[in-house]
Design a binder for these strands. Sequence first.
DNA 1: ATGGCGTATGGAATACGA
Length: 269
Amino acid sequence: MTRRLTVVTWNINSVRLRLPIVEKLLAEVQPDVLCLQETKCPDANFPEKALRQAGYEHIAINGQKGYHGVATISRLPINNIERRAFCGIGDSRHIAVDVPFNGASLRLHNFYVPAGGDEPNREINPKFGHKLDFLGEMKDWLTGEETRRPSVLVGDLNVAPYEHDVWSHKQLLKVVSHTPVETDLFETVRDSGGWIDAMRRFTPMEDKLYTWWSYRAKDWSKTDKGRRLDHVWVSEALDHNIRSAKVLRDARGWEKPSDHAPVIAEFEA
DNA sequence: ATGGCGTATGGAATACGA
């Protein structure tokens, strides 16, 4: 029986280009399940063989050519794979699986929420409207029956909701990812589903917490102008099973890094 | 100085990320 479970979420920004650091993460962290976003890889080209050889034989992918794409890879058997489309668009932005836990299973949702473009105004920027609509559909779907059972929701949600989820609250209030319209909606999505912010359970609200640093900074670590765009939410049924949730900041400095760092969450029955 | 870079596509220059 699976009494302990480690889940990692990571926006990998091309799974094929970064296969070496995916393998490094699997070897060093040895999670039970790894949820990837922005795989940028059609399903036919997904590096399944290499991941199986690393011990992750159970793989669920929802990829498309060029953009987006999510994948959930597991060393435990997975069941009931679901790929949900949002906003009437065929984008590959979600995959859900059942993972064995404590003699039963938990539902694991893996999301890549639209970034939203540059201008935080849906009248002039359709991408921003798409982002808000996507979050709205998440809210309507991920409530009631869908979240009654033990569930985990991870991914690049592309919103940094709290003051200390960004390097400068004041300077980012008009920057997409931290505008009040987004952060208010984000809280509504989380709250209406009864979701718990697992990362903030272990890091005080007044402490800075980031998962993403721009490629454009000369020295990302020194300037440290980060944002918390990647999240781990758990349903109330799993509230007492969360043991830790932390950012693997080191991985942002690995060879040919993603601009996102992995988030590691541990559960125990 | 929140884009200063990086990726996919396609085979150069553009779209996209956040």
